[in-house]
Amino acid sequence: MSAAQPHVPSPTGQRRIALICAKAGLDEAYPALILANAARASGIDASIFFTFYGLDVITEKKVDNLHVSMVGNPGSPMPHALAGLPGMDSVATTFMKKKMEELEVPNVREMIQMISDAGCRIFACELAMNMMDLKLGDLLPQVDSVLTAEDFYKETVGADIVFV
């Protein structure tokens, strides 16, 4: 029997990953959350840095209203001339949420709770918060801390950094 090696820790120690989420579309939030969750499930240290519109994903008032846009989306099955019509976003969003539900993928709020429970650290960008007039109290309670970009690099020394 060969050695089971689902993940290979680096010779220096723990493998780490740091994801940067800068957009708030469902199709942009989910990849970051799923990758972070999968990392933790594989024993990889994980953190997500939410910045710019990505802050919506961890903003109390917006987390349940994220949607997916067909506009400017080359993967959209819809003709682009129609994608911008009113109601198209909500159609696409409903469709995607339904599909995710069928696959037993939790909604974004639960997903954040899950990765937080899993030990994934959740960071908010200080500059983007100032820009959008957000306070720590406006964010989800799972947010660990508010960081500058510089702090983020300090927190994620040795991590693979992925811009989602």
């Binding site: 060969s2 050695a3 689902p6 820790p9 120690g13 024993g43 240290d45 899993a118 030990g119 650290r121």
Partner: peptide, 14 residues
Amino acid sequence: AVAHVGVAPASGPP
């Protein structure tokens, strides 16, 4: 939980 990480690899010996 984070502190535990890396203590014992899940795969371990075959």
